[in-house]
Design a protein around this nucleic acid. Structure first.
Lengths: 333, 333
DNA sequence: CTGAAAGCGCTAACAA
DNA sequence: TTGTTAGCGCTTTCAG
C-alpha cells in the first residue's frame, strides 16, 4: 500500500494540516514537530502525491511540448534546451510528436489540456491556427517555437527566417552564382514560407531571374531532399547552386548527387539551414545557416513560465543566427 | 472559468453521476439523456479533468521515460518508438534527460513517482542499481531499455551486446586485421561492459593478442571519440582497426583522423555500433552494428503496459541485430 | 435509468 | 502553534 499524508500524520500524532505545513516549508510549526514529521516521512518512505496537490492548487508543474519530428536532428537539441530549463524551473515535460500530421497536433493539444499541463510549447502548422485562436480566448498559456503562426497572439521564439534565407541566398550570389534553386520546407508552415520569401527577396535584390522550375516544395525530410534533387538533376538546364530549407534535405541531396556521380561543390553548390550537428562531419562540410537551438528551447520555457505566472509577456523573441561557412559552396566567376 | 462536470450536469439538469456515466460510456443511461449530455459537453466546450480522474482511479495514463542523452542520435529513434506506441495505447510520456548524471537519474525517478506515472522506462547506469531494488519491492512497474542492470528483476529490452561486439570484432578479424583497438562506452553502464567482453572474446577466440593500450574508455560522446583517437594516433605502435562502442565516438574519430591527414579505411579501419541514421551519409559510410531502435522503444512500452496491468511479465527481451557493411573497413592480408 | 453520498490525497481558510 | 472543515473534479457504491 502506498503511504499518504494521513499515514505520516497518524504516525506522529498530528493533523494532516501540520504535515502539509512541513511538507511545504510553511512557517508556524514548532521545530520539534517539524523534526518528528520529517523523521516519519523518511522512515515511512512517504512520497507526496503531486496529482492530489495539483487538483487543489490547479497547478501541475508540468508543461506540454508538441513537436513535428523528434527524429529530425534539429529538434532534439531544442528539446534538450526545453527539458533542461524546465527542470531547472521545477517543471516536467510531456512530449508529443506529431509527424507533421494536423490531426495529431489537435489530439495532442486536447490530451495535454485534459492532463492539465500548466502551459504548452508547440511547433504547429498553419492549418491549425483556428485552434490557437480558441485557446487564446481561454488564456491558456502557449508559446510557439520554431514555427510561428502569425495570426496568433501567442509569443513565438524563432529566428528571422526570411532574413536568414536572404543571407543564405546572398552568400550564394556573392560566391558568383546566378542560377540558384531552392528546395522549400513544408509550405503549410510559416517557417518554410518565410524562407521562400527571403530566397526570392535576395534574387530580386541582385537582379537575378527566378525560375519556377528550380523552386520545389519539400517536406523537411531527408527523403524529400533526395527525391527533389533527382528532379533537378533531370532538368535540361540546371542551377549551379541550391538552397535547401533545412540540412536534412540537403543531406538527401548529397546522396542523390553522389549516386549520379556528381560532386559537391564542383557540380552543385549546396547550402543548408539549421546547422544540425552532423553538418560538420559530413564531407564536404555543409555550409548552412546556424540556429541557436538550445537557446530557442530555453527561452521558450522562460516565456511560457511568464505566461503561466500571468506576467502577460506576449512579445515574440527573435534570436540572431549566423552563416556557417564550410565546404559545400564553390566560388565561381 | 474552466467548465467542469458539474457545469454540464447543471446545464442538462442531471446529476454529475449521469454525466460521468456518459463520459465513460457506461451502460444504464437512456439514449435521450445521453444525447442531451453530449450536446451540452460540446456547447460548453467541456474538457474532462484527467487529473481529478487520476486521483480517484489511481491511474494517470502517463508513463515516465528517463534517458541519458536525447542529443545522441541513438535515442530520438527510441523515443519515437516509445512515444508512438504509448500514444497508441492511450498513454502520455513524461521525458527526463539525465546527461548520464547519476544524481539526475535519482531525481528524475523521484519526480516521476510523485507525478504518479503508471510506470517508467529507463536507461540507467549501474551505480543506481540499489534504487531499482527498492522500487522492485514496491512493485513499481519499470522496464529497462538499452542499458540493463542485471541485478534487477525488472525486464530489459536490449540487444545482445556481447554478441554484437563479438560480431563486430570478428568482422574486423575476418577482414584480416590482427591489431585491433576498442574504444569503450562509459564503463559504468552494463552495455559498455558487455561490448568490451564481446570484443575480448573475439580476440581470444581467434588467438589475437590483446593490448591494453589499445583499449580506451570513452563516454559515448563524439568528443571522447575525437580525443581518444588522438591518443591512439600518438601511440608508437598503432592498431590497424578500431571498434568503437558507438557511432558517435566513431565520428569523433573521423574528425581526428582527417585532422591528422590520415584516411579511412586506408590508414585506419573503423567499425561503429548502433547504425544511427547519419552513418549512411558520411564518407566513407560507417560500417556498424545495427540496432532496431524504434522497435526497442515500442516493445519496451508493451512490456511496461503488461507490468502495469499486472500481467507479471518479467521476461527480458533480446532483439536480433545485424552487421551493416559500408566502407570504413579495409580488407588486408 | 438516475441520484445522493462518500472518498481519492492534498491545501487553505478559519478557529482555537 | 495546531486542528477542523471544506473543497479541488471526478468515480463509485448503494438506494431508489
Amino acid at each position: 500500500m502506498v503511504v499518504t499524508i494521513k499515514d505520516v500524520a497518524r504516525a506522529v500524532n498530528v493533523s494532516v494540516t501540520t504535515v502539509s505545513r512541513v511538507l511545504n516549508n510553511k512557517p508556524d510549526v514548532s521545530e520539534e514537530t517539524k523534526k518528528k514529521v520529517k523523521e516519519a516521512i523518511r522512515t515511512l518512505g512517504y512520497n507526496p502525491n503531486n496529482i492530489a496537490r495539483g487538483l487543489v492548487l490547479r497547478k501541475t508543474n508540468t508543461i506540454g511540448l508538441i513537436i513535428p519530428d523528434i527524429n529530425n536532428p534539429f529538434f532534439p537539441e531544442i528539446v534538450k534546451g526545453i527539458e533542461r530549463k524546465a527542470k531547472e524551473e521545477g517543471y516536467s515535460l510531456i512530449l508529443y510528436n506529431t509527424d507533421n500530421n494536423k490531426e495529431e497536433e489537435k489530439e495532442a493539444l486536447a490530451l495535454l489540456r485534459s492532463k492539465k499541463v500548466d502551459g504548452i510549447i508547440l511547433s504547429f502548422s498553419l492549418e491549425n491556427k483556428e485552434i490557437l485562436k480558441k485557446l487564446e480566448k481561454e488564456e491558456y498559456p502557449v508559446v510557439q517555437i520554431d514555427r510561428q503562426i502569425r495570426d496568433s497572439l501567442y509569443p513565438a521564439v524563432t529566428i528571422d527566417n526570411k532574413r536568414s534565407a536572404y543571407n543564405a541566398t546572398e552568400y550564394l550570389i556573392k560566391q558568383g552564382h546566378k542560377e540558384i534553386g531552392h528546395i522549400t520546407g513544408d509550405l503549410s508552415t510559416e517557417t518554410a514560407l518565410e524562407r521562400l520569401k527571403g530566397f526570392k527577396m535576395a534574387l530580386e535584390k541582385y537582379g537575378i531571374p527566378l525560375r519556377e522550375e528550380w523552386i520545389l516544395e519539400g517536406d523537411y525530410s531527408r527523403g524529400s531532399g533526395k527525391e527533389l534533387m533527382e528532379r533537378i538533376i533531370k532538368l535540361k538546364h540546371r542551377p549551379t547552386a541550391i538552397f535547401f530549407a533545412n540540412d536534412l534535405m540537403a543531406f538527401g541531396a548529397y546522396e542523390t548527387i553522389y549516386n549520379y556521380n556528381y560532386r559537391i561543390p564542383e557540380d552543385f553548390s549546396i547550402i543548408g539551414h539549421d546547422n544540425i550537428e552532423i553538418t560538420s562531419f559530413v564531407k564536404p562540410g555543409l555550409t548552412t545557416m546556424d540556429q541557436p537551438k538550445y537557446q530557442l528551447g530555453a527561452i521558450a520555457v522562460e516565456k511560457l513560465i511568464n505566461l503561466i505566472e500571468k506576467k502577460n509577456d506576449f512579445h515574440s523573441v527573435i534570436l540572431e543566427n549566423e552563416l556557417i561557412i564550410r565546404d559545400s559552396v564553390k566560388a565561381i566567376r
